[in-house]
Design a protein around this nucleic acid. Structure first.
Ligand code: FES
Ligand code: FES
Lengths: 145, 145
DNA sequence: TTAATAAAAGATAAATTTGTCCTTTATTTG
DNA sequence: CAAATAAAGGACAAATTTATCTTTTATTAA
């Protein structure tokens, strides 16, 4: 059980990779992305299709086409990736699986869990898609192992 | 995508319910548990089977049998339930799905994620299986909706 | 305008998780 | 002992997630 689904994991890594390339003025194709984030190529294609439909990434077909993200897109929070793919259950749901999280009828973990959930939420809202660049990747950060 | 798997959600709710009943000096059967935590009975049976094999809950067959938890068991942390069912990936894994979480080659979320992960870990270690009782359930806490 | 390129889209398949059903084993009670 | 009870265990099925493969559409460039 990973923390996020594979779908979200690949999506976050891919979007950040596309963001880095976009800041270098480059579009990048599925093949290149999949290699650099170590994900199954065709599965990733499906994920990017969805993100593209939702406008989270932009794409152009044909030679020298590929995926990219424009300046406003780079300002968006990582949270948008999760929301686009799986809605906002992660940000609002009950930790013990009750049908809704409530102050009136909380589950036993509620008081602690809502703190955790808020921290996850703020982590994903404060981190922007475009805040990492090539220096980060060449320096210390990694997306592929 | 729930935060925990269904397996873990049902397991936590069931164990707490068994703990409450145990503190009342009662053993409780699958049927009763499933009804009170609102879970599929047979699926829950499988989960409790595993927890029983690992000694996290105790069980007795036959008339007036059922599941229960003894005094030392009630002192154990909720974390043990997760570990018993899915190992410790939740407590150690990388948020972006890298094969291991590392300070040397961190993923872009690492610095924030490790705080979140620590908070989850401490929530589940500080909360004990036996710290909720009938008054909690009759008062405010719920396990079944 | 043709060939090549690359994403979009659709179909299918494998793997995992979730859920159900049936049989066996252990225990209790009459 | 026989019957009833309840968990253990095994087999199976549905649903969802993850992964792969093929065809179509859009775009570029020769
Ligand atoms: S009710 Fe479970 S986290 Fe709020
Ligand atoms: S490397 Fe990703 S959370 Fe530590």
């Amino acid at each position: 059980m990973g923390f996020f689904s594979k779908t979200c994991e690949y999506a976050m890594r891919a979007v950040i990779y596309i963001a880095v390339r976009s800041q270098e003025g480059q579009r990048t194709g599925i093949r290149e992305i999949a290699e650099n984030i170590n994900s199954p190529e065709h599965f990733l294609a499906k994920i990017l299709q969805k993100l593209s439909q939702q406008g989270l990434v932009l794409s152009i077909k044909g030679p020298h086409g590929g995926f990219y993200i424009d300046a406003p897109g780079l300002q968006r929070p990582m949270a948008d990736i999760i929301t686009a793919l799986e809605g906002n259950e992660l940000f609002t749901g009950c930790g013990m699986g009750l049908s809704y999280c409530s102050e009136n009828n909380p589950c036993p973990l509620h008081e602690d869990f809502k703190i955790v959930r808020n921290q996850i939420t703020s982590m994903l809202y404060k981190t922007t898609i475009g805040e990492f660049n090539r220096e980060h990747l060449n320096g210390k950060l990694t997306l592929n192992k």
